[in-house]
Design a binder for these strands. Structure first.
Length: 588
RNA sequence: GGCGCCGUAGCUCAAUUGGUUAGAGUACUGGACUGUCGAUCCAGUGGUUGCGGGUUCGAGUCCCGUCGGCGUCGCCA
């Protein structure tokens, strides 16, 4: 090693010792007679001093050439700082290293991204010079958090008997679901591998193979448009277990949640984690991944709305729609008339035609522009139903059920953010289970699997496969952290007859099924044990544990919204020779 | 694919209603300084206002197109 210590570990204990530190020049202060350098590595910052009499004159002269981000090796004596010169802002601030000799290991250009900078440069610059951005203590903290979290996940699973098995990255395209990233085959021209959207089929086959408990930290790929919490390439903790039901899989993850929350955040999370059904989540929160850190629960008002003279409410109630509302406690302090107008514009983005609202007046009565369509008694009933108190703002959505969910969920989330209803560092973990097996695709006029076509229905809903697929619920469960879907899994079908029914409902005929995943169906016929599993989005977990606003900040080398890498400039063009070998022609 | 925000010095930002030679902080360069820690003081360098076109006596500012970054809807079984 070129160094004897890191820049984070020296204290009064080493006073008098000669040490050697290596690191980057975080900052320097030139005083003419001497020079101070804050030397940085990933462990911390230590002040190294180039001053007489410890430092020879020629070394002091040479030190004047030091600049930001130069890499140096400094040999010197650890000394307590002079009286009153300790720096409490620095972990090593009680001491300094008085340099006796030093060496510039490497110079640096003027860095466009300054690791200790007060102002964060634009994200495009940070991504282009990611090696500089990753030197920032905030990024180093997150990368180390990520590494610890993944290690804990592996440890937790290993301790419970899971076997870590790698599955192929070069696989076969299965056209349902997200778009695949494709890799042309050179040896078999005209054919393509697909990068996995998840190791789903392989892990089920590993259950058939008898591995009983499988785990993998798996890289997954989806060629879809990006979001703040979505990357085209992401990492999952992928699990599969044999001879289990939903509770067993959930139990493994409950333990992991409690352990990670304790170790990384110091939080005591009681287990089992709370659970609610999908139907309850949609009724109470309008979303299948509700943020339970705050209230703003949805309240059913269709019966009251039907009694009013307000055309919108009456018509919706008559036509089988729903009138639902949220009570924004003390909302009038946040939303003036203009604020409510802004909310109205906002809900239009989600397909609402308008936003009906009441305000709770000083005397507790409900008022507002639509109040005239309601009798005194009816207003009082609304007030009672909503538990309205002076200052409250009541917002309605009147539409078909799904539309009210969309609008009220959007409002809930936006208002919680604007009214700061969540506390920093607050974490809420819960499960949503019993998802519908299918949803109906209006465009294509057919049923689609809500999860994937191997998801097992609830025992008690088996009959619905025949009479009413829309009512059939799945043995599916999603882990929700602070309103984010942090993982999801299902118990799989291991019965050929049920599998056949599901396929035919989805309009997948025998030939298609055989072509797309015949290998899995084959395997399932050779003694497949009952099995199920789950996949957790590791990037999202790190993002939530690290309180980050976007997923890129917890990935060392992320892609931009257009799925490019600004540092390597991937994707890039390739030689005509390479294309020829692959038998690929560019049609553009 | 739709909608929205943004792009000015190495970096972070400013520039009144379209009006003089596009400014500030920081960084950088040179100088001063024996204890600083966002060092301080003095001086200086640094600009095709993303790119292309248009309107105008005059464009960083307005219009059209385009490129790039971000957010969001669609999409993500």
């Amino acid at each position: 090693m070129l160094r004897t210590h890191t820049c984070g570990e020296l204290s009064e204990q080493q006073c008098g010792q000669s040490v050697t530190l290596c690191g980057w020049v975080d900052s320097y202060r030139d005083h003419g007679g001497g020079l101070f350098v804050d030397l940085r590595d990933r462990y911390g910052v230590t002040q190294v001093v180039f001053n007489p009499p410890d430092t020879p004159v020629d070394a002091i002269e040479a030190s004047k050439g030091l600049r930001s981000e130069f890499v140096i090796k400094a040999v010197g004596n650890v000394a307590e700082r002079p009286e009153g010169m300790a720096n409490p802002k620095l972990a090593t601030g009680a001491i300094e290293v008085r340099v006796t000799e030093f060496q510039i290991l490497n110079k640096s250009l003027v860095p466009p991204v300054v690791p200790n900078g007060q102002e964060l440069p634009g994200e495009d610059l940070r991504l282009k010079h990611r090696y500089l951005d990753l030197r920032r203590p905030a990024m180093q903290r997150i990368m180390m958090l990520r590494a610890r979290m993944i290690k804990t996940m592996r440890d937790h699973c290993t301790q419970q008997g899971f076997v870590d098995i790698e599955t192929p990255v070069l696989g076969r395209s299965t056209p349902e679901g997200a778009r695949d990233y494709l890799v042309p085959s050179r040896v078999n021209q005209g054919t393509f591998y697909a990068l996995p959207q998840s190791p789903q089929l392989y892990k089920q086959i590993l259950m058939v193979a008898g591995f009983d408990r499988y785990m993998q930290v798996a890289r997954c790929f989806r060629d879809e448009d990006l979001r703040a919490d979505r990357q085209p390439e992401f990492t999952q903790l992928d699990l599969e277990m044999s001879f289990v039901d939903s509770d067993d899989v959930i139990g493994v993850i409950d333990g992991l949640v409690a352990r990670l929350a304790k170790e990384e955040l110091g939080l005591d999370v009681p287990t089992p984690l709370p659970r609610m059904t999908y139907d309850e989540a949609m009724e109470r929160f309008g979303h299948d991944a509700p943020d339970l850190r705050f209230g703003l629960e949805i309240i059913e008002c269709t019966d009251l709305a039907a009694k009013s003279d307000f055309g919108v409410f009456k018509n919706v109630a008559k036509s089988g729609g729903r009138v639902r509302a949220i009570n924004v406690k003390n909302g009038l302090s946040q939303y003036s008339r203009r604020g409510i107008d802004a909310l109205t514009e906002f809900v239009k983005e989600f397909g609402a035609k308008g936003l009906a609202w009441f305000r709770a007046e000083e005397d507790g009565k409900l008022g507002g522009s639509i109040a005239k369509f309601f009798s005194e008694e009816l207003l009082a009933e609304f007030g009672g139903r909503m538990a309205a108190e002076p200052g409250d703002l009541i917002l309605f959505s009147a539409d078909q059920f799904a539309a009210t969910c969309r609008v009220l969920h959007a409002l809930r989330t936006k208002i919680a953010r604007e009214m700061k209803l969540t506390k920093p560092g607050e974490m809420h973990f819960s499960w949503v289970e019993e998802f519908p097996m299918f949803d109906f695709d209006e465009d294509e006029q057919r049923w689609q699997a809500m999860h994937h076509p191997f998801t097992a229905p609830l025992e008690r809903d088996l009959a619905h496969l025949e009479d009413d697929p829309g009512k059939c619920r799945a043995q599916a469960y999603d882990l929700v952290i602070n309103g984010s879907e942090a993982g999801g899994g299902t118990i799989r079908i291991h019965d050929a007859e049920i599998q056949q029914k599901v396929f035919s409902l989805l309009g997948i005929d025998e030939a298609t099924a055989k072509e797309r995943f015949g290998f899995l169906l084959d395997a399932l016929q050779y003694g497949a044990p009952p099995h199920g599993g789950i996949a957790l989005g590791i990037d999202r977990w790190v993002m939530l544990f690290g309180e980050l606003e976007n997923i890129r900040d917890c990935i060392a080398f992320p892609k931009t919204q257009k799925a490019t890498d600004l540092m390597t400039e991937a994707p890039g063009t390739v030689d005509a020779k390479q294309l020829k070998e692959l038998g690929v022609k560019i049609d553009a």
